[in-house]
Amino acid sequence: MTDTLAPLLARLTGDEKHEPASESTVDLIWALYDRVLRVDPARPDAVDRDRFLVSKGHGPHAYYAVLAAKGFFPESWLDDLAGPDSRLGHHPDRTLIPGMEIGSGSLGHGLGLAVGVALGLRAQGLPGPRVYVLLGDGELDEGANHEAIAYAGAVGLGSLTAIVVDNRSASFRQDLVGLFTVHGWTGTTVDGRDHDRIERAVRGHAPGRPHVVAADVAGRP
């Protein structure tokens, strides 16, 4: 991973403020795209694809680098982050980037959208695709998330997986997995740098219940 992504990440300059946020997600996003997600850069809009929604839109460098590495767009796009004609901004815009499911950056929107995507796939008789949404621990302070957590648990939205990157950015520490499991989700905490464990944790969902994985990256290089 490092050999592939490091040179790509080095091309993304100009948003150093969000580098820690980006760095915290890089293993997770790579593990998902390399091992879990059923997506195809040749068919980024395929109806039967898994959906990966990045709600935590702050610091999307890692996401951009992984998408470029996997062939969703040319690596040359990485050289003009947030330029006047760039498709890649400090917060991502789905209408500009192939393979990106939502535009985000204002925290607290992705989980509600993910619930809607999961419901929409179910309503159209598409039980195959899973819906993954990437959140941050600080983002979970936003109240809109809790509407979605409670509802998804109440209706047993089993095709939904939330992944919470825990880089200790929340002002007040809380039991991240417990926020979900109290509403009927299954959940676990995993080392957010360990690709094998990330894969096992993400695949560890149970039928008829949404699933959460808290990926702990605090204090790790």
């Binding site: 619930v115 999961a118 419901l119």
Partner: peptide, 9 residues
């Protein structure tokens, strides 16, 4: 949010 997600599908 759900309306947006439904529309995305």
């Amino acid at each position: 949010g759900v309306a947006g997600g439904l529309a995305l599908t």
